[in-house]
């Protein structure tokens, strides 16, 4: 137990952060270089105004037509993403670890808020899972990887909640929480979760083409 803790708290944590940030830089650089080679016209038509306009419409809830057509999915997905990013970044227990390791700290959530937000993440994942199975078009598009990604996201939040509540077996839950969180971080750049940092590129591409070339909306 002590060895696993020391490993998860030290080398594996470093590894996860390095693969996460290194992976993001690598994938961004690779796609930008590939576009320069294969799709050079993208650079020629790049428009900061239309790119920003597209990003704004897709980052504001109900800012796009498809979001208005699917109000439940839109509500769930925005609540999910806010909680998904907010809890790990502003959890008191996490900030304490940053303070101990790097002597930096910032604003934190109350314990109750963090727990409610974690439940929102978990219930959202249940919704996404059921939606993948029940809705025919989404089911057709779903691969095994999509279900595994869902599990990858659920694990650190479920075990984190278990650890925070101190329920029976919380020792194992805490170790699983650390390990699954590190696995998630390291896999983000190399799975569909890369939409986390590819989102701006998608919007820059579509926004510029629709705005500057086709004179149409892309939202």
């Amino acid at each position: 137990m002590y060895d696993i803790y020391a490993l998860a708290r030290g080398p594996l944590a470093w590894g996860a952060f390095i693969v996460f940030f290194g992976g993001i830089i690598y994938r961004l650089a690779a796609i930008l270089l590939e576009a320069r080679k294969k799709d050079h016209v993208v650079y020629a038509y790049f428009s900061p105004y239309y790119a920003m306009r597209s990003m704004l419409h897709w980052i504001v809830p109900f800012g796009s037509r498809s979001m208005r057509q699917q109000p439940i999915l839109t509500t769930v997905t925005f609540a999910f993403h806010i909680c998904l990013i907010g809890v790990p970044l502003f959890l008191f227990a996490h900030i304490i670890l940053f303070k101990e390791s790097f002597d930096i700290s910032w604003w934190t959530l109350s314990g109750m808020a963090a727990q409610v937000m974690t439940v929102i993440v978990l219930l959202s994942c249940v919704y996404f899972f059921v939606r993948r199975i029940v809705q025919p078009d989404v089911r057709y598009l779903s691969s095994t990887a999509d279900y595994l990604i869902l599990l990858l996201v659920v694990l650190p939040f479920a075990t984190g909640f278990w650890a925070a509540r101190g329920w029976a077996g919380f020792e194992i839950a805490t170790l699983l929480h650390m390990l699954s969180g590190e696995l998630l971080l390291a896999l983000i750049p190399f799975t569909k979760l890369s939409h986390m940092f590819f989102f701006p590129l998608t919007r820059i591409y579509a926004g510029s083409e629709f705005g500057a070339v086709r004179n149409a909306k892309d939202w």
Binding site: Y2, Y5, I96, A164, F170
Partner: peptide, 23 residues
């Protein structure tokens, strides 16, 4: 808080005895 955590956990990890996890 950091000082307490460091003092307790460092020794517990070195000795492989006593608590180290948050809960």
């Amino acid at each position: 808080i950091s000082a307490y955590h460091r003092l307790c956990r460092t020794c517990h990890l070195n000795e492989k005895a006593g608590p180290v996890l948050c809960g």
